[in-house]
Design a protein around this nucleic acid. Structure first.
Length: 479
RNA sequence: UCCCCAGUAGCUCAGUUGGUUAGAGCGACUGACUGUUAAUCAGUAGGCCCCUGGUUCGAGUCCAGGCUGGGGAGCCA
């Protein structure tokens, strides 16, 4: 018999149909006269209840069926006597496909800590929580491609291995095939990279932005969506050594067009998940509420689904760095000395506590901050006429902080070149980037969206290590 | 990288001013039970108390160093 997925049975299969299902047992329970199996096959977060009656010739197989066992069942779809499900499967034939040693199988039909599940990342897919998280992660990835495709953007594959470390977004992982126990040296004692695979020093990319700009200056609107790597020793709930980033880059867009696109995209993506993953969101909403039961009221975060709806309903606040600076300088916590980093001098970088105050206390919604001091931003950002600020924009989300960082890019060759020189950067590594400003240069803009931070926000998961299947963090590359 | 907290059964945790044989709940196992919903009831098994060293008559408990995990900060997406 052809296999039917659980999702199909729960939604569409008429009562009385004969079907075959295959999947993994969540729980099994029963008595002398009847056995119950809760089965999940990954097609939906919901389970199918299978009933095996005592007169079934396969009834004694039940004693070898435990949590985690893979089984195949032929049976009839019937209306459920129990109240928790519309239909169930009355088994005619039960086959065990893959056994489980119940003494050793670490997943139990009970709540596990996320920390424990992280240590068994090869099995945590089998829990409802990760089932929901990774289904939504997929949905977001798909929606991102759909969003851009529908608006005439082209998906550009930028290199993972890069020969330039000019972007300056963070420490890099080196890529080499040299024998580390016997590194070839030049006469003056330095590493002889001419003997390395690429005959030069290479690293894993920290950003595809510079290459995306090259493509945007011909294809108009492009985006990247790929893995990026940062060798920073960051140990937080918001950082990974390997993460996925979305970087659109648009010719003829100024900073305002850039902000409009960022806001439209974020709202589109949140709406997409609300429309397409209601069961998963409901599960995660309950999970979060349950987890926060023990917290004090004022420390609890907003209801997950309410939070998502508030993002799509409300316009993001848009302010300049200078306005944000004034708000913070005159704020109560600043005057009372409650900030760990007091706000005194214009030009300071905004700290987590400042961003949190603006988003969660002052505006009570998402905020976009523009026109940052040029000293604290990257070399490629478009310089304003005041000679002090650049056309940068950061989108700040409640609970997450910076979810998007972007800017209008400096298209003027002389200004860009001067900035490269000022910062002591190696222009020979950037010749190709600079050259685009010589040939038909136009205003253009773009931004970077951290994919895992988006998934974190939408699923309500507190730790970024729980929204990527196999997290890479300092001292941890298991699996 | 810095600050704080934690590491005891498969999981979540308790373990008194250092004192003899190490505790619970859940899970697993065995049995009972006429339809259960993380079933219920009874019983059984299960410990390198993170590692190394030190103090002490005696260390799960105190001290030092390390390892691992978590939270916060910085860096950022």
């Amino acid at each position: 018999m052809k296999r039917t997925e659980v999702k199909e049975i729960l939604l569409n299969t008429p009562v009385g149909s004969e079907v075959n299902v295959k999947g993994w047992v969540r729980t099994r329970r029963g008595s002398k006269n009847v056995g119950f199996i809760t089965l999940n096959d990954g097609s939906t977060i919901n389970n199918l209840q299978i009933v095996v009656e005592a007169d079934n010739p396969d009834f004694d197989k039940l004693e070898n069926i435990y949590s985690g066992t893979a089984i195949s069942v032929d049976g009839e779809v019937v209306e459920s006597i129990g109240s928790k499900q519309r239909v169930e499967l009355k088994a005619k034939r039960v086959d065990i496909l893959g056994n489980v040693d119940p003494d050793k199988y670490p997943l139990q039909p009970k709540k596990h800590s996320l920390e424990f599940l992280r240590e068994i990342a090869h099995l945590r897919f089998r829990t409802n929580t990760f089932n929901a998280v990774f289904r939504i992660r997929h949905g977001l990835a798909y929606a991102i491609h759909k969003f851009f495709n529908d608006r005439g953007f082209y998906y550009i594959h930028t290199p993972i291995i890069t020969g330039s470390d000019a972007e300056g977004a963070g420490a890099m992982f080196q890529v080499t095939t040299l024998d580390l126990n016997n590194v070839p040296k030049t006469d003056d004692g330095k590493v002889d990279y001419s003997k390395d695979f690429f005959a030069k020093k290479t690293n894993l990319t920290v950003s595809g932005q510079l290459e995306a700009e090259l493509a945007a200056l011909a294809l108009g609107k492009v985006y990247t969506f790929g893995p990026t790597f940062r060798a920073e020793n960051s140990n937080t709930t918001r950082h990974l050594a390997e993460f996925w980033m979305i970087e659109p880059e648009m010719a003829f867009y100024d900073i305002n067009d850039d902000m409009d696109l960022a806001e439209e995209m974020l709202k589109y993506l949140v709406k997409y998940v609300l429309n397409n993953f209601p069961d998963e969101l409901e599960f995660l909403r309950k999970r979060l509420a349950d987890e926060e039961k023990n917290k004090k009221k004022e420390e609890r975060s907003q209801d997950l689904i309410e939070k998502l709806n508030s993002v799509i309903d409300v316009e993001f606040a848009r302010i300049t760095y200078s306005e944000a600076f004034d708000i913070l300088r005159n704020s109560k916590p600043n005057k009372k000395g409650k900030f760990e980093f007091p706000v005194k001098e214009w030009g300071i970088d905004l700290q987590s506590e400042h961003e949190k105050y603006l988003v969660e206390k002052h505006f009570k919604r998402s905020v976009i901050i523009t026109d940052y001091p040029k000293a604290i931003k990257a070399f490629y950002m478009k310089q304003n006429d005041d000679d002090k600020t650049v056309k940068a924009m950061d989108v700040l989300f409640p609970g997450i902080g910076e979810i998007i960082g972007g800017s209008q890019r400096e298209e003027d060759y002389d200004k860009l070149y001067a900035r490269v020189k000022d910062l002591g950067m190696d222009e020979s590594e950037l010749w190709w980037y600079l050259e685009t400003r010589k040939y038909g240069s136009v205003p253009h803009s773009g931004f970077g969206l951290g994919f895992e931070r988006l998934v974190q926000f939408v699923t309500g998961m507190g730790n970024i290590r729980d929204v990527i299947p196999f997290p890479r963090t300092p001292k941890n590359a298991e699996f």
